[in-house]
Design a protein around this nucleic acid. Structure first.
Lengths: 193, 193
DNA sequence: CGTTTTCTTGATTATATGTTCAATAATAAC
DNA sequence: GTTATTATTGAACATATAATCAAGAAAACG
């Protein structure tokens, strides 16, 4: 019997993702969100509870789309090392002229919110551990393929996670592509046989 | 003829540094600053103009104290590689049970403010390039000492900068010491002869 | 068609924010 | 001691913020 919702939740949240991504949590006001989502505050509050609820939804959406696609590149490569390299190459592309110009929503969330909102901290931890797991699997595969240096194994995943976070931070300083490529090359060269 | 200022500027700014460091720019209100600095808003505005002016002063102070000390460890070591290692070891200590638990004020500023405040972005760039220069010098020295692997030279400084930023992000997720130590070991192992 | 239920609208509210300012207090020079 | 100058105080201000809500609109069902 009810009136049906006029807007599509996913596309609305996608807009919210972009806005939070670009300006951070405190940096974006309800006004910005209304403008970006093309919705009135009432609708947003009806659908998501409050600003924080919308942010939580945006994190989920980000992880389910942007991040999932990125992670998929790791396992969808012909070899373990190729997967890792594909992941970082794509990241570099996105930093140079894609959405990753604003870093990574999750990395930004770590910096801004991890220490004041336990629920967000948990979501972050889950996501990071998912990336970590993907790196682990790729490293194990690469190891089995004999592509890694002696003493290098799946346990180096956190190191890759660290490099990833570093790249996401540097992204915000608009570095030229060769700089990013050199960093990735160096980071991976240390692992290769 | 004037009445003399009652509070010491440096110690007041030190308190501001801590507060901004912990809670970010948007995350700390004038109330917090008044409480932390034990000053009334009027005094703060008289001395620093506005909240942003105080933040700028805090960045300068941070760079002049915390960051300067850290950088000094690089050049004040018996060898180039020792300097780099000392720098990261100290960082790990500070992350585990020191102030770096809240990351790095500059790294946090990159994430939160670099893309919306050009003056802050400039200050950040100056600082990062200072760290980069220190890494470069240490790498050159290590190279001259024959401590680096073939093909590794001063140009790897940005790579170290990236790892540094990554560690500062991970710091906010409260990682256990061995994890941090493993990351540093891996990062440096890739450069060593 | 009428009713019910839900969504949308956008003005309104309460609050918190950064900021100002007039009054007061303290110092240094004459 | 008087005066000139500056610091401190803390209430007050303007603004922006997140959040609410009553009125109107739209759909589904009987």
């Amino acid at each position: 019997m009810p009136r049906v919702r006029e807007f599509d939740t996913d596309t609305a949240v996608d807009r919210a993702v972009e806005t939070f991504w670009k300006h951070g949590y405190d940096g974006t006001g309800m006004q910005d969100l209304c403008a970006a989502m093309d919705l009135h505050s009432g609708s947003i509050y009806a659908a998501f509870g409050d600003k924080r609820g919308l942010y939580l939804a945006a994190m989920d959406r980000y992880i389910d789309t942007v991040s999932r696609d990125a992670i998929a590149r790791i396992s969808g490569a012909p070899s373990g090392l190729d997967g890792i390299r594909a992941y970082f190459d794509h990241l570099v592309d996105a930093i140079v002229d894609g959405k990753r110009r604003w870093g990574c929503l999750i990395t930004n969330a770590v910096a801004e919110l991890a220490q004041r909102d336990p629920e967000i901290a948990t979501k972050i931890a889950v996501h990071l551990s998912r990336v970590d797991t993907a790196f682990q699997a790729a490293l194990a595969r690469a190891q089995a393929e004999g592509a890694l240096a002696k003493g290098v194994g799946p346990e180096k995943s956190t190191y890759l996670l660290c490099v990833l976070q570093g790249l996401n931070v540097l992204a915000k300083t608009q570095p030229p592509r060769p700089v990013l490529e050199a960093i990735v090359d160096t980071a991976l060269a240390g692992l290769e046989r």
